[in-house]
Design a protein around this nucleic acid. Structure first.
Length: 614
RNA sequence: GCGCCCGUAGCUCAGUGGAUUAGAGCGAUAGGUUGCGGUCCUAUAGGCCAGGAGUUCGAAUCUCUUCGGGCGCACCA
């Protein structure tokens, strides 16, 4: 499946040869192997019955096995029923065509073909990097795709929590990754502000009571759990004896942020709402609370480096009759039926395990009905692909929504739902059972980003795959700030920038790669860096295909490590006791510049600042 | 009970289109380096890849099974 793989962009190392022709190294190798197979067949040494036998080229994890390797002899042995794969490899080598790129070939282990390339192909890669600069690593294979990625979408009843942090960076970086592959991408946040949501009502009510407290009402707060007591809180700034004692609801929202919202409402309208009619009052609290909460959420996400293109209000699905229309159309298509006073979707016909209620017997639409309308709306806006990021606790909902989307006439395959495994919170080793109602939300911005900065916070979340359950100890994360590999990576970038600055001070102009003597770069640590730089475009593609942004942080750490090795072994600028020829300095400056480009591009994709100085 | 996810070094985790000797960071131990910025480098120790069975020339990776942990099974959102 070698070539198909290549076409999908998995192994597409590309570079320019000295004539400026774009070459894809693995395709070159595949062709060479293929030619060798043909030659061997013609010579009667291989009974090959399939001229398009798949050739796989891979990068061995251990450098001693060459720059690339192929298991072709092993797969041939299996397919042809031969018995000695080392012997097959022998025959392939005997008929291997000459190539300017290949230094030599070796047979290893059970019959692996290891390719050792000449360093010239790495030298030439610097031409590509220089020419493409900010575009190096990107491609256009997703051109024509319009992708909407919806993530975070936390209920507007509390601040963005540290738990949301993981999905937040994941979605943001995924969007950037898809853009590097040529797709048009937008980031969307869904606001669950539906009027039939009791949550919002309760939330606004909690704010209203806290507001009254600012007017001097004392408030009785019921015990939060079995271990705590009922408390009587005085009015603010003091209790007004003429004002009635209010009771905070048992299932009210207890967080400090509720008081903050109440306070800002108080500062805005003063005592005005005290005497307002009940209806006006509740309307005011509902809208003001929602507005404030969303502003707070947006602010926290911005501090985390995330900007959404669209904030989509669930309520508009009702005000614009989308929900109603969706339901009507499902009925018209006979994908819904009445039973026990409710309207049911025949979701089992679309892969769900049971049918679902669309309209309750009290005539209110269910959440899934609105969600189907919402996703239909996303498609109607011209998006060719939808990506949702949800917590793993929603996995039971996936089949339901997909069935609904399919019933509404859209291809559920164009809706990808990524489930991130759970993030559990720990504070100094103690589990935090958090919740907005309990009021012990650990906030993304205030409890983490404000302390360690968005770069460290983002990198921290990007270290691991979203498929692994994670435990976040905020206190530990803060204490370990200096151990965060983000600084190691940023430092490497600052160092590169510094060398280029110093070079200029010493009168070295950065020259075009085409005129420097690249053949001077032969040290292993130089070639290691260059090899890594050539892998960057592949890495972007793989990270995109696998929805795996954490590959980039790993890649960055590896590149930074190779750069430190290079720095240790190879002086770029001449020093007092370290003479370096001007030609070598120029060649190494080209390498430094290429590394700078790649590291900077990568950091931009993950939304971490490529600092020039630290 | 049914379904999904996870179990890899002391800790946090990569690796799961099968393939040559399973990796990184932190921590530990022993060295180096006063620098083109020490937020550095090198080396060593540490793993029956949760247990078992199977497929395969070859399994951390695929299949089955056991154990342990998480999550989900609404006319809630």
């Amino acid at each position: 499946m070698g070539e198909e793989v290549g076409e999908e962009g998995y192994y597409t190392l590309s570079f320019l040869n000295s004539e400026g022709v774009l070459l894809v190294i693995t395709s070159v190798l595949i062709e060479l192997v293929r030619t060798a197979l043909q030659n061997a067949k013609t010579a009667g040494e291989l009974p090959l019955d399939d001229d398009n036998f798949p050739v796989q080229i891979e990068t061995p994890r251990n450098k001693q096995f060459g720059d690339y390797s192929s298991n072709i002899a092993l797969t041939l042995k299996k397919a042809m029923g031969l018995n000695d794969s080392r012997d097959i490899a022998q025959r392939i080598i005997r008929h291997f065509p000459d190539s300017p790129h290949i230094d030599h070939l070796e047979i290893a282990g059970p019959g692996f073909l290891n390719f050792y390339l000449k360093p010239t192909w790495l030298h030439d890669a610097m031409l590509t990097i220089e020419a493409q600069d900010t575009a190096y690593g990107t491609n256009t294979r997703l051109e024509g795709e319009t992708i909407l990625i919806e993530f975070v979408s936390a209920n507007p009843t509390g601040p963005i929590s540290v738990v949301n942090g993981r999905a937040a960076v994941l979605g943001d970086v995924l969007a950037s990754l898809l853009a590097t592959q040529g797709a048009e991408v937008s980031r969307e946040y869904y606001i669950n502000d539906a009027l039939n949501s009791l949550q919002l009502e309760k939330f606004a009510n909690s704010v209203a009571i806290r507001y009254a407290q600012f007017l001097g009402h004392p408030v009785v707060v019921p015990p939060a759990d079995e271990s705590s007591q009922e408390t009587l809180e005085p009015g603010t700034p003091q209790t007004d004896p003429a004002k009635a004692v209010l009771h905070f609801p048992k299932d009210g929202y207890r967080g400090e942020y509720v008081k903050d919202i109440a306070q800002s409402i108080f500062e805005e309208v003063g005592t005005h709402l005290e005497t307002a009619p009940a209806e006006e009052k509740s309307d005011y609290f509902r809208t003001a609370t929602l507005k404030q909460m969303i502003a707070t959420q947006r602010n926290a996400l911005q501090a985390f480096g995330i900007e959404f293109d669209t904030w989509f209000y669930e309520s508009t699905l009702y005000t614009e009759n989308s929900v109603e229309q969706t339901i009507e159309s499902l009925k018209a298509q006979e994908h819904a039926y009445e039973k026990e006073g409710a309207l049911w979707l025949k979701s089992t016909e679309f892969g769900d395990e049971k049918d679902r209620v669309l309209v309750r017997s009290n005539e209110k639409a269910t959440y899934v009905a609105a969600d189907i309308a919402y996703h239909a709306n996303k498609f109607q806006r011209g998006n060719t692909k939808l990506i949702n990021i949800w917590g793993a606790d929603h996995h039971g909902y996936v089949a339901r929504l997909k069935a609904g989307v399919a019933a509404a006439g859209y291809n559920a395959k164009n809706l990808d739902i990524i489930l991130t495994q759970m993030v559990s919170l720990v504070r100094d080793g103690e589990a935090v059972i958090g919740g907005k109602r309990k009021g012990n939300v650990i906030e993304l911005k205030e409890d983490l980003v404000d302390d360690i900065g968005k770069d460290a916070a983002r990198f921290y979340f990007l270290l691991n795959s979203y498929e692994t359950p994670a435990t976040v100890d905020v206190e530990l994360a803060k204490r370990q700030t200096n151990d965060n590999p983000v600084y190691y990576v940023q430092y490497a970038h600052a160092r590169l920038a510094n060398i280029l600055r110093r070079a200029e001070e010493q009168g070295f102009q950065l020259q075009p790669v085409s005129v420097v003597d690249r053949s001077l770069l032969i040290e292993p640590s130089e070639l290691d860096v260059l090899r890594k730089l050539t892998e960057y475009p592949n890495e972007l593609t793989s990270a995109t295909n696998e929805y795996a942004p954490h590959r980039l942080t790993r890649f960055a750490m590896e590149l930074a490590s190779l750069l430190n090795g290079f720095y240790e072994n190879c002086r770029v600028l001449p020093g007092k006791d370290d003479p370096v020829s001007a030609e070598l300095t120029q060649a190494r400056l080209s390498l430094v510049n290429g590394a700078r480009i790649v590291l900077r591009n990568l950091l931009n994709v993950i939304g971490v600042t490529p600092v020039e100085k630290m």
